[in-house]
Write a protein that binds this DNA or RNA. Structure first.
Lengths: 230, 230
DNA sequence: TCTCGGCAAAATACAGTGTATCGACATGAG
DNA sequence: CTCATGTCGATACACTGTATTTTGCCGAGA
């Protein structure tokens, strides 16, 4: 018995329903991050006592699951992608865009299996793009590998973005941005490769680094699909 | 000014120090997960009032950062890897093993930039393995892409593991394990590809699926290192 | 030796959290 | 008109991270 099994409460549910609860929670999270979402605040925003929510949701984690699935509705592409590569490409970019709109998604991505109806629809569309192209085992590996990549990449990107924001400095000025600690560490000479990196590295655009890494991984998948044994 | 800049308190620090605090927090987390770590419980385990901790740590998030860096000490390989591929391979597998020992690491991985001394040492070793092999830009892309992959893969693996544990069923019995919801969804016929997948798919070993995905990504990186423009 | 000042540590305090429980009220049935 | 049901609100509890106040010790000066 998970969230998804719970039926909408029977009839006269007042002006309150799950959709409204989830929407309130999402707007709260959009404004103040995940930690700004408390059942009391969600309830307050709906002019309702905190306990009312438990008629629609049985735990805060469930609310998070519902929020995530709501965002998967934004991720689902509106038109069926042409081939598997386009499908994964679009999925990755739409997930990233959604995370841009809902930064808190980065904190939840990959944290639990996504089994809501919208997430399932996304998975369906993705798998459908592989129809007849390879054995299920290979398809699974392909989808999971690409998903793991963009999930991890998005999380790191948001983590860096927040760090920059907290220090007010750019990612390129890594040393200063991270406080004297890193600078001092580098000065010890114990990290020559890292030091050279920080010193000579050029500022990289997050968009292109995400897209480039994605292309690499997609190339890898393409190679495996072409020669399944390799 | 970050955690790493804070000096150990001057001299007579009682039998208490950061190491002991972090160790207590880690053992608490190992036993009961991240949510079992509260400053009060950590303090209690050290026979100390909760406020004592604030002489060594200024926020709970800092404690988490310290815990993560402590685990990076386990991740750091004891001998210098032969080439870049071995370096990334080892890094990925050691990170996964560490997460197996400290499951809570999955919740923190990629959530914040890892800038502790041990994390820096790990980065140093990894970068050093690329010395002279390619321009910095390419090296960055290589390391970040592989890291994104294994970070995401480890998180998903732990997420699935927990879901299995919660339902007591195997990942292969996805439908039942996820409660009637998924089963019912699949029965609607709206997800034919997914249904076929769940129905025909074979149980996959987490070890091999992690290793296989990793090899794919490493192959991709190798291809790019060989032909930098491609 | 006694007293006082400073300071580390402990106790208390506060605002908030998720959630359980209980009491009132309103609404429908007989 | 009465009574039962069941929904909703208020209250309560155990806990959180952290700020503030109180305590008590220990060394310096008289």
């Amino acid at each position: 018995m998970t969230v998804w099994d719970r039926p909408e409460p029977p009839t006269r549910p007042a002006p309150l329903d799950r959709e409204r609860i989830v929407a309130a929670a999402i707007s709260l999270a959009d404004e103040g991050g995940l930690e700004a979402v408390s059942l009391r605040k969600v309830a307050a925003r709906l002019d309702v006592g905190p306990m009312r929510l438990y008629g629609y949701i049985s735990t805060k984690e469930e609310l998070f699951d519902l929020m995530v699935d709501e965002v998967y509705a934004e991720i689902l592409p509106e038109e069926r992608p042409g081939d598997w590569r386009e499908a994964l490409h679009i999925l990755a970019h739409r997930t990233r865009q959604a995370t841009r709109r809902h930064e808190w998604l980065a904190d939840l991505l990959g944290g639990r299996p996504a089994l809501g109806p919208n997430a399932l629809a996304v998975t369906e569309t993705t798998l459908a793009a592989f129809d007849g192209l390879a054995d299920l085992e290979t398809v699974a590996r392909a989808v999971e590998t690409v998903s793991a990549y963009f999930t991890g990449a998005i999380r790191r990107e948001i983590a860096n973005l927040r760090a920059e924001r907290a220090t007010g400095l750019s990612d390129r000025d890594w040393q200063r941005a991270s406080g004297p600690h890193v600078t001092r560490m580098l000065a010890t000479g114990r990290f020559p490769a890292l030091a050279k990196f920080v010193h000579d590295g050029t500022e990289v655009d997050a968009d292109v680094s995400f897209a480039t890494g994605l292309d690499w991984v997609l190339d890898a998948v393409a190679a495996k699909l072409a020669r399944p044994s390799a």
